[in-house]
Structure formats: C-alpha cells, structure tokens
C-alpha cells in the first residue's frame, strides 16, 4: 500500500549487528514505499560495516550520541529532504512494520501519532509497567491528556513537529518532549493500537541505573521544567 505522504523511517542503531539486516531487509522487500534511514550511533560491533556492505542508506555518526542525538540526526535529514512524516522505528525488531500504514493514516488530523500497545489492550499493572504508568499519570496531570503508552518508541511526527525537533538540546524522543509539544506547541497527539515483539538479540539502550536516571529526569521534566520551557 502506498503512503500518500512522503514518509521516512528513522532507525537509530547502536550495536545492532545481529538484528539490523533482518529488520531492514523486511522493510525493503515488503514495504518499499517507505523510505528509511539507519542512524549508526557509533556502534562498535560492525553495524556500520554491515550497512555499508549491504548498501543501506545510513548516517554514520563518528561518536556515540545516545538515542536522542541519533534520532535528532535522522530528524535533521528528514527536515532537509522535506519529508511530511518521520517515524521512529527500532533496529532490534520490536516494532512491527504492519502498523506503519495505520500510523500514517492517523497523521491526517494529528501532529504526532504514537504506536501504542495499550489502546484496546489493557495495560498490565506490573513492575515492568511501573515506569510507564508513572509517566502516563504525570502527563495526564500536567497536560490533561491520557496517553496510555508514553514510552513507546514507535512515534510518527509530521512536518511541523519535525521542524520543532530538529534543533535544540532537550527534544529527544522521550515522553517529556511529548508533554512539552502538547502544552507549548499545541501538538495534537493520537494513539494507534499496535503490538510489539520482544527483543531477540543484543542489549537495550537502558540499564538499571540508566532507568533510574531516566525516571528522575522524566519526573523533573514533566512535573516541573516544562512549565517554563
């Protein structure tokens, strides 16, 4: 199915040598109407070499910037090439491309569309979802809108949001950016039900101390800092 607007899939990749070919090959063969851009975030496991050898389109960051920096690099590319829509798509295979069309069609009257695991499915009240629940409550408290899956990485941004995200230090693909864009830039946000796979290989971006710092940062940013950004 051909998307009606020019869409770019931004694929941040840090040490995803085991997953990247599987993920990108599927996009190339089954979803050729979507442009993609891998962003190699200074991987040390040969991810860049694989991309080069296979002829994938990718940005090769010379140093590691983290997810926010890598994603923003992709956003800059999207802005320079006048894309109407940019979608973050994980390199580890957790995001499923079957839902891309649904995301794109919801862009017609929204600025940001989140691929959410919990629109029609109930969110489990487990430890793993604790962070997700806390962030969701904080956003509802400060912005008045209930987002069921604020930590989902599968998000689509339209051209005006791309412009907002392209420059500046505090605009990573995180829930506090969502809150800021909703409050200060009047972004219209919608969620679309998706399902996601479990990670098959490699390690995630966040470890335990990373998770703690992440929650702290989210709390500070959503409950306090966003009011004077």
């Amino acid at each position: 199915m051909r998307p009606t607007i020019k869409t770019l899939l931004i694929i941040p990749a840090y040490n995803e040598a085991e997953n990247i070919e599987r993920v990108v090959d599927e996009l190339i063969s089954d979803y050729p109407s979507y442009d993609y851009l891998i962003v190699n975030d200074g991987s040390r496991d040969g991810t860049a070499e694989i991309c080069r050898k296979r002829g994938y389109r990718f940005l090769d960051l010379p140093i590691n910037l983290g997810l926010a920096g890598a994603f923003q690099a992709g956003i800059k590319y999207a802005q320079r090439n006048a894309y109407d829509c940019a979608i973050q798509f994980d390199a580890d295979g957790q995001h499923r491309p079957e839902y891309l069309d649904a995301l794109v069609s919801a862009m017609s009257d929204n600025d940001i569309v989140i691929g959410s695991r919990f629109v029609t499915e109930a969110k489990p009240k487990s430890m793993r979802m604790l962070g997700n629940n806390i962030v969701s409550d904080m956003i509802r408290l400060t912005c008045g809108k209930r987002i069921n899956d604020p930590t989902s990485g599968m998000r689509a941004y339209n051209a005006s949001m791309i412009k907002e995200l392209a420059f500046g230090p505090n605009l990573g693909p995180e829930p506090d950016t969502l809150a800021y864009l909703m409050r200060k830039r009047h972004a219209r946000v919608a969620e679309v039900q998706v399902s996601m796979e479990e990670r098959i290989a490699g390690t995630s971006y966040l470890d335990f101390t990373g998770s703690i710092l992440y929650m702290l940062r989210m709390a500070c940013s959503v409950l306090f800092i966003q009011f004077f950004r």
Binding site: R54, G55, R57, Y77
Partner: peptide, 22 residues
C-alpha cells in the same frame, strides 16, 4: 555493491555526505 537494494526516493543526488555507500 547492490545499488538496487537502496529504496531511495529516486533522487540521484544524495546530499548527506556521511552516507558513503550512496
């Protein structure tokens, strides 16, 4: 190198200098 596998939008000129393969 397999150029055909790259689903570029048809633009022959790739402005991104950091992507050497294209």
């Amino acid at each position: 190198e397999k150029r055909s596998e790259d689903p570029s939008t048809g633009e022959q000129q790739n402005s991104s200098a950091s992507s050497y393969s294209t």
